[in-house]
Structure formats: C-alpha cells, structure tokens
Amino acid sequence: MTSLKTLAGRPAFGATGPRLLNPQRRWAQVHDVRFLVTHQQNARLVDKYKDKLQRKAKEEGLKDVDELKAAYQSKIEWQRKKALTSAASAVLETPDRTPTSPPLQSTSPYPAPPPPPQPAPASTSPSTSKTGLPPGVKTLSSYIDLDKTLQLPQREIEYLWRLRHASDKQSLCAVIPNQTYSRIESTARRHPQFILPLPREGKGAEIHFLQWTFPTPTTATVLFTHLAEFKLRGEFAQPHTTVTHHLDLREEKGLVLLQGAVVEGRGLTVDEARWLLMCLQKFYGGEGEQPAKRRLLESFSGGDDAFKVEELLEEAEKIV
C-alpha cells in the first residue's frame, strides 16, 4: 500500500498533468464583489437623501448625518432583521403553493432526476390485499364457485375438485372428511412444527421440515422445506411444497378440500411430496392409540433431548 508520505510528495495532477503556462502573480488581489456592489448602492442612497438627512439631524439636535446614523443604528438593524425574517417566511411557504406558471426549461445536457416516490395508498399495503387476506393466500372461491358447489352431493364435489387440478402436473389435491381433518388440526395446533423422513433408495432417508400456519379462519397451510436448507437459512428458507386446506365446506358438506403445489427444480417430485403428505396424516391424524408417534411429536415440540431420529425412521417404515 502506498504510504501517506509518498502521496504527500506526489504532484496533484500526476507526472503527465497539464502545467500552468501563466502562473498567478503573488501580488494579485481578490475582491468580494458582493461587498463592492452593496457599498456603492449605500453611497448612492446617502448622496440622494443627504439634504433630508442633514435636516433630520438638526431637528434631533445632532451634529451631522454620521451622528444621526449612530443614533438610529439599533432601529436600522431591527428593520433589517424584520425584512429578512419576512423574506425567509415567504420562501418556506412557497412549496405549499400551486405554481401558476410552467417550470423553467433546463439547459443541462443530462436528463432530469425522477420525481420522489409517493407513499402507497392504504388499500395496496404489502401486508394485506384488498380482500384483507395475507399475501399469497387464496380462498376456495378463487378455484370454484362456492354457491353452486354447495348444491352438489359429496361424491360430485370430490370428482370436480380432482378434475380441477388434473391438468397441473405439479399440483396436489385431496378431499378429507371433516372428522379426519379435525384430529389433524387439533394435533397441528399443539405441534405446529415437525420433521418427516423421505426414504431415498440406496441413500437412507432425507429429512424434511414442516410448519403449520393458520392465516385465515377458513384456511390452514403446511410448508415443507428441506431440513438442511432450513438450518442454513432459517425463516428465509424457501419451501419446496405448499399445501393449503380449505375449510369453507367443512360444516355444510363435512369435507375439507386440500390443494398443494410442488415447486419444480427444488429436488422433490410430486410422488415424493405425496409420501410426505401421507406421513403427515399418519402422525397428525392417526386413529386409535399411537403412543410412539404422539411421544415423538411431543418431544420434538418441547425440544427434548430424548427425541431420536432413529425412532422417527422406525415409525415412518410402519406407514408403508
């Protein structure tokens, strides 16, 4: 690194910089033009009103104009400050007024800077949409006509729901009875986070992290993420699969419609995502006594050191 001493001895323009052909003379003087103009204006005013000022000085019992100026010096300063204050107030109020004349045309060769950004209106706030929903959350009415669907029997609703997603190769869909979903939701609210294994042929198992959220009263969402990525990025990790449970038909039809999507290129196939969904249903909504699965959920949620991945793998193998 170049030392400060070397930089201090280096010429300002470098070795190849232009030289001054006519160096400035040391006796040259620079005058403040503003002082010269002001002094000349004051002198002209004194000459113009000299007679009046002399008469005023005699009326006040003073010797000459200089004594008159000295006597009224404080009043003159006060008037000047008052004038400056009024002018400053006028300048500060100018931006609030609507201009009545077109702006001056700029002669600069560069384009004018963009106007300052305006604050977004309340209706387009990033935290909520026009419908009051969190960003990225879709209601069931964005997929089907709810009024017409409520008039159909359960079997037709299931058929139409599967047909609705049949053309999307990356989608997941299912129809869950309300009784089964009630068990799943009850467990999910107690244990909103968990891990599930995904068997890999010849490579053991790959662990995935899941998280439940309940963004609206009629939706429940599960986010699946690679555990390795979640450990690395935390809350900024990108899920590879998102599954939403729609509860709009839960009361009247006894059905919960599931819809999900697998992000292409995130290292997971649709069939593998279906396996994770099946594991989720077995761990969260299994019927009968399942002490081993319940113990794994409780120990994981409580951060218990007794949680063993080996036991998780054993319980997952029983699902097949």
Rank of each mutant, 00 (worst) to 15 (best):
T6P: 09
R10H: 15
L21C: 07
L21T: 02
P23T: 06
Q24M: 14
R26E: 13
W27K: 09
W27L: 14
D32Y: 08
F35L: 07
F35Y: 12
R44Y: 03
L45E: 15
K50P: 03
Q54I: 05
R55E: 14
D64H: 04
D64M: 00
K69F: 15
K75V: 11
E77Q: 13
A83G: 01
L84F: 12
T85S: 03
E93L: 10
R97V: 13
A120N: 04
P121I: 13
T131M: 05
L133A: 01
V137S: 02
V137H: 00
Y143V: 08
K148I: 08
P153G: 08
Q170P: 09
L172K: 10
E185Q: 09
T187M: 15
A188C: 12
L196I: 07
G202S: 00
G204H: 06
G204Y: 05
A205R: 10
F209W: 06
T213F: 00
F214C: 07
F224S: 01
E235Y: 01
P239Y: 04
P239G: 05
T241K: 06
T242Q: 14
K253H: 05
K253E: 00
G254L: 01
V263I: 03
E264F: 06
G267N: 01
D271P: 08
E272F: 00
A273T: 02
Q281R: 10
Q281M: 12
F283R: 02
Y284G: 03
G288D: 14
E289M: 13
P291Q: 09
P291A: 15
R295Q: 11
E310R: 07
L312V: 05
L313I: 04
I319D: 07
